[in-house]
Nucleic acid binder design. Sequence first.
DNA 1: TTGAACATCTTAGCCGCTAAGACAATTCCT
DNA 2: AGGAATTGTCTTAGCGGCTAAGATGTTCAA
Lengths: 151, 151
Amino acid sequence: MFNMEPEVLERFTLYMREQSALTVMFHTKVAEQMGLSATDEKCLDLAMRAEGPLTAGRIAELSGLSTGAVTGVIDRLERAGFVRRVRDPHDRRKVLVQVTPGDLGKFEQLFGKAQASLVEVLSHFDDDELQVIERYLQLQIETFRRRVIDT
Amino acid sequence: MFNMEPEVLERFTLYMREQSALTVMFHTKVAEQMGLSATDEKCLDLAMRAEGPLTAGRIAELSGLSTGAVTGVIDRLERAGFVRRVRDPHDRRKVLVQVTPGDLGKFEQLFGKAQASLVEVLSHFDDDELQVIERYLQLQIETFRRRVIDT
DNA sequence: TTGAACATCTTAGCCGCTAAGACAATTCCT
DNA sequence: AGGAATTGTCTTAGCGGCTAAGATGTTCAA
């Protein structure tokens, strides 16, 4: 874009950095409250957001950890009751990590609070404005994803 | 808010989680490219975003690390040329961490790329829409900050 | 069937983190 | 002013998670 005033860009850049820093802190705190490390929480989040159950190896890829580290992560998550190891019946080398449906109470509770915050924020906008925001978020995520991948 | 359709909230919640996960990954990658750990990059970011130079202790508070850990962080950042230790002339117990103005080339370059992405995203919106988005970001950050602090 | 490829686990070694205490500078109290 | 308490940073010991390399168990192709 050519005709954007520099102050606008500066302000938005600051928002991004601020948001980034807060996000990192939030994840740390959520993990802490759940009695997990940030790494473990990150992997649990991956497993929860995935369509079906992930394999251990896929978690390693997505998280950027070594397979050895992921073994430890799953050990701890399993011991804490958040996930279960299930051998893939079609390929018994693979370990499927199933998120335990119950026992996610603490997690849901913490994210529930975050969701309440989100509702509060969104309540300040009418439908047309929400559409703008949604379009922004979709674009931002899509662009950011590409950027993260080839960084 | 009462009259928001549940699907809308669900979608926004997903955006938040997606954005969170991408942010964490982005920070990891930025740190990696700079030859720093995620922790070190986080502290450098704090130091760069602060008004004046931060003390070692303040960095410990803001980052949630122990003072001992911060000593190590500053050692590494200093060795890598990103910051300098300066004793506070008014209270010689304190160590001020000054961000080196030069030598931030790699950092600026990486964040420059992120900024280019931001510009691209923002270019899809007109001025009125940008105002909506800015209002959203401000509210979101403010609300999120309170949420993070008392989580 | 046998070797190669694959998925996960195990182990050794390293590094950063915390907690506790050492050290130095400052402030407080009388 | 002068000693005690406080404050800010650094040091150290010990712990735990991470990586890399190799072990183990499974699948696949010829």
